[in-house]
Design a protein around this nucleic acid. Structure first.
Length: 500
RNA sequence: GCUCCGGUAGUGUAGUCCGGUCAAUCAUUCCGGCCUUUCGAGCCGAAGACCCGGGUUCAAAUCCCGGCCGGAGCACCA
C-alpha cells in the first residue's frame, strides 16, 4: 500500500485523525523550554574569576539569565574560586564579572563567593563523614589511581567513622600537611566509568588565597563545592558544559549520602570561534602578560570587554547567544553572525564621518567651495556636518592609485573633479552638481584630525573629520571603511574597529 | 585502555522524545541583479544539508543494530 492509498483509507475510516496530522508544529523561537521550570527557577553562572568574562562566559551569563527572565526566579553569580594555586583567582576579576554582567543586561540577584564560605563546607563534610559517605585517604595520588583503574578500594576506605573524623580534624588543624591526605566521597569502586569512582572532595593547600589569605588550609574541589552550593542556594536548573558531564553522576552520590535532591541539568557543547580559534582564559592571560596584547580589552581578544570597546552592542550578543540555543553539539561559530546582528542595531544609530587612511594630499584648482555639507546619516534626518573644504584635501592613497590624469571623480558630498596629475596629486574643480554614474570617493579636510583605528586585523592610521571628536564612546561609521567605536580623544584619536 | 556524549546546507539553527502536510525551517555566508552621492543599509533572485550501511514499517531526518567521524571525562584544575 502506498502512502497515498493509506491516506485515502484513513480519510474514510477516521478523517479527524488526518486533520490532526495536518496541524503544523510551530517553529521553536528563542530558547527551548526547560523542564520543570513553570514555578520559577533558580539558576547560576559559576565562573572562576581568573580573568574577565570571554565570549564563552557571555553565553553562560546570557542564557542563564534569559531563562530566569522567561520563567521568573533568581539569577545568581557564584565565584568558584577554590583553587589558590592552579587556577588562582585575580582579585580584579570579581568586579569585572559584575561589570560585564550588568552591561550584558544580566544583573545577578545575588552574588556568592565560595572562598568566603569554606567554613560552612566543613560542617557538611563532617556530616558526610558521620554518615559514612566520605573517608580521609592517605594514598599517594598515583597509588590511588592504580587501585581506582583496577576498580579496587584503597586501604583507607573502610576506616571507622571515628578514625575518619579524627583524621579530618588533623587535616584542618595542620597535623597533616599538604599532599598527605584528601577527603574522598564514597561512590562505587566498581563503577564501570572510572571517572566516577571515589572522587576527592577536599585537599590541603597552604598557599594563601588571594582573597581569603591563610584563613583556610583545607580547600574543597569543584565537585564538592559546586554540589553543596547548588543545594544550599536552592538551584533548580544547572546549565553546564559537556566537559562537566560526569559531575552530575559524581555529585549524585554526595546528594544521596546527604538525602538531597539533585537539580535538573542541561549540557551544552564546546564553543569555538573561527576568528579566535579555541581560547582559554589562562592562555589569554599568559599572552597578555607576555605583551602580545595590550590588555584584556585589546580588539584582537575574545573578551566581553573587548567587544564592548569595539562597539558590539550587548543586545547583539544576547540575540546571538539565545539563537545558538543549548545544543550538546560542539559548535564552531563565525564572528560574521555576531557582526550581522550588531550591524542591524548600529546602522541606524551611527553617525557617518570621513576617515582617510593612508592619506595623500590633493590640490584642487578652481573655485572649490570652502565648506562642504554632508548628512550625519544617509536615511535618517539627524542634520548635517559642515566640513572645511577648499582647494586642498586628503584622499586615500589606494583611491588615488586607481586614478589617472583625465579621470573624473566625485568627492562625496563636496564636488566633482578632473584629475590633472597624480604625482603630486592635482585636480581641477568641475562643479558641485551630483553627477550620475561617477566614481565616488571620500576625503578629509586639510586640517583633519589624526585618527588611529585598532582592529582585530591590524591598525590603520589617517585623518578624519573634526566631528569625530564629539563622538567619544559612541559607535560611528567611517564611510567606505566600517563601524568603529571612538574610545579615546587626543593625538591621535583612538577608535576600535567593529566590522564593515 | 575504560567511560560518556554528539553528527541536518560553508557556518549556526528548527524538526528527532510522540515516524506521515519534510522534494526539510530560519539566520548568516557566498553568487547574481536592482537601488543608493559609502565598499554600509535596503530590495529581488539563486545556490546549498538529513555521516555511512543494514533492519523495522504502507511510510524513517525521526525508531533499532552495526560502522565511521568528531568532542569530552578518567586530577589533591575549574
Amino acid at each position: 500500500m502506498s502512502p497515498e492509498e493509506w491516506k485515502e483509507r484513513l480519510e474514510k475510516i477516521a478523517p479527524e485523525l488526518l486533520q490532526e496530522l495536518s496541524v503544523r508544529k510551530e517553529p521553536a523561537k528563542g530558547l527551548p523550554p526547560l523542564e520543570g521550570a513553570d514555578g520559577g527557577v533558580v539558576m547560576r553562572f559559576a565562573p572562576n574569576p581568573n580573568g574577565p568574562p570571554t565570549l564563552g562566559s557571555a553565553r553562560g551569563i546570557i542564557v542563564n539569565s534569559e531563562y530566569v527572565k522567561k520563567y521568573g526566579g533568581r539569577f545568581l553569580i557564584r565565584f568558584d574560586d577554590t583553587d589558590p594555586v592552579k587556577k588562582r583567582p585575580m582579585p580584579e576579576a570579581y568586579g569585572w564579572y559584575l561589570e560585564d554582567c550588568a552591561w550584558l543586561g544580566a544583573v545577578p540577584d545575588q552574588v556568592i563567593t565560595a572562598s568566603e564560605r569554606v567554613a560552612s563546607y566543613y560542617g557538611i563534610a563532617e556530616e558526610l563523614i558521620r554518615r559514612g559517605g566520605a573517608y580521609v585517604c592517605g594514598c599517594a595520588q598515583e597509588t590511588f589511581k592504580e587501585l581506582k583503574d583496577k576498580g579496587r578500594p584503597c586501604p583507607h576506605r573502610d576506616q571507622p567513622v571515628e578514625m575518619n573524623l579524627d583524621l579530618w580534624k588533623k587535616m584542618l588543624s595542620g597535623e597533616l600537611s599538604e599532599g598527605q591526605a584528601v577527603l574522598r566521597v564514597k561512590t562505587d569502586m566498581s563503577h564501570k566509568d572510572p571517572a566516577i569512582r571515589d572522587w576527592a572532595a577536599f585537599r590541603i593547600v597552604t598557599t594563601p588565597h588571594p582573597l581569603a589569605g591563610s584563613k583556610y588550609r583545607v580547600w574543597p574541589l569543584l565537585d564538592f563545592e559546586s554540589a553543596v552550593e547548588d543545594h544550599l542556594l536552592g538551584v533548580t536548573h544547572i546549565l553546564r558544559g559537556k566537559d562537566l558531564m560526569d559531575s552530575e553522576r559524581r555529585q549524585g552520590y554526595l546528594y544521596r549520602h546527604l538525602g538531597w535532591e539533585y537539580p535538573r541539568v542541561v549540557h551544552w557543547g564546546r564553543i569555538k570561534i573561527h576568528q579566535f580559534g579555541s581560547f582559554s582564559t589562562s592562555k589569554l592571560r599568559r599572552a597578555i602578560e607576555a605583551g602580545e596584547y595590550t590588555g584584556w580589552d585589546d580588539p584582537r581578544v575574545p573578551t566581553v570587554r573587548a567587544m564592548r570597546c569595539r562597539g558590539i552592542q550587548a543586545e547583539a550578543l544576547r540575540k546571538f547567544m539565545i539563537d545558538l540555543g543549548v545544543g550538546e553539539t560542539d559548535i564552531s561559530i563565525s564572528m560574521d553572525s555576531i557582526y550581522a546582528e550588531n550591524r542591524k542595531i548600529v546602522d541606524p544609530i551611527a553617525n557617518r564621518y570621513f576617515f582617510v587612511w593612508d592619506p595623500v594630499a590633493l590640490e584642487i584648482e578652481g573655485e572649490a567651495p570652502a565648506v562642504a555639507y554632508a548628512p550625519l546619516h544617509p536615511a535618517i534626518d539627524r542634520g548635517e556636518r559642515a566640513i572645511p573644504a577648499g582647494n586642498s584635501v586628503f584622499i586615500c592613497r589606494s583611491d588615488l592609485e586607481g586614478l589617472k590624469p583625465g579621470d573624473r571623480v566625485r568627492l562625496k558630498d563636496f564636488c566633482n573633479l578632473e584629475i590633472l596629475e597624480t604625482e603630486p596629486a592635482r585636480a581641477r574643480f568641475l562643479g558641485k552638481e551630483v553627477g550620475k554614474k561617477m566614481k565616488i570617493i571620500h576625503w578629509a579636510p586639510k586640517n583633519g584630525l589624526p585618527v588611529k583605528v585598532l582592529g582585530p586585523e591590524g591598525v590603520d592610521e589617517g585623518l578624519g573629520e573634526e566631528g569625530i571628536a564629539g563622538e567619544l564612546n559612541r559607535v560611528v561609521q567611517f564611510e567606505r571603511y566600517g563601524f568603529v567605536r571612538i574610545n579615546r580623544l587626543g593625538e591621535p584619536i583612538v577608535a576600535y574597529f567593529a566590522h564593515r
